[in-house]
Design a protein around this nucleic acid. Structure first.
Lengths: 141, 141
DNA sequence: GTGGTTGCAAACCCTTTGCACGGCA
DNA sequence: TGCCGTGCAAAGGGTTTGCAACCAC
């Protein structure tokens, strides 16, 4: 996936964020890299065409993007943080032997969970988001 | 919750682990502290009665306990690691404004999820565990 | 113009590691 | 007794911070 710069610009503008080359590069990197890149992977990718970007800048921009809900942060039990462009609600499959993470989206599952929690109604807790982590391993590879 | 030392000893013995004062203290601390303590909270708690325990030892013991499935490691998006005595399969409620974590156990939910994934059967992926993270906030407190 | 952003490098913090000593089985 | 476990202190590594220069708006 290689979004054009208009798409990326739009995402930033939508949130009233200042458009800077760094922010565009970082957001584009996350969309392009796709598979839940680490900060390091994002930095490496961007430096190929933009060698001067600073590590600190990347972390600061990532924080801004998270605050503005343009990306998510994903963490596993024995891993550094990973970043993830927000497209729609989705769940994750974790392979605990290979550190791979895959998205899992299924409307039926979301419907089941919503229905379940509507009936359960946990007292004094307001649900904002439901995330499922499915842990296991990928076969044959 | 304040488990007696026989209970703790049993847990270690069950797994064929050598019984040492440090291991007993750490496991007992996790049971007693209850609410998903951080390593630091565990260390502080233990040092009150056992001032000489080394930080490195605590981390090493925690790793051993995890490997032997006596405890779990829980991670949130903006937090250091937390530890959790394993009692039975359970899910977590995260409050993202207060860093609180609560356990959530419900057999009906587990049944629904198991049923769902049995029918779905994700290709090339063998499920070991399903964890739900419910993110939101606690009301009135 | 000016307040939000960036680059840089040092600081941070939690966690891990190596090694000699000590204590459980 | 032999070997695993512990203490200690230093190193590690990803992330954060402070500040001056810079540039989007």
């Amino acid at each position: 996936m290689m979004p054009d710069s208009g798409f990326i610009k739009g995402k930033l503008a939508e949130k009233g964020l200042r458009i800077t080359p760094q922010r565009m590069a970082i957001l584009e990197a996350i969309y392009t890299l796709g598979n839940h890149p680490t900060a390091e992977q994002i930095i490496t990718y961007i430096r190929k065409i933009y060698p001067n970007i600073a590590t600190g800048t990347v972390y600061k921009v990532l924080d801004v993007l998270i605050e503005n809900e343009l990306i998510h942060r994903v963490k596993t039990d024995n891993d550094s943080m990973r970043y993830d462009a927000i497209t729609s609600a989705h769940h994750h499959l974790y392979a605990n032997d290979s550190n791979k993470i895959m998205d899992y989206t299924d409307e039926q599952l979301d419907a089941i969970l919503t229905e379940y929690f509507k009936n359960k109604n946990i007292p004094d807790f307001e649900i904002k988001e439901i995330r499922l982590q499915v842990i296991g391993k990928f076969l044959n590879n």
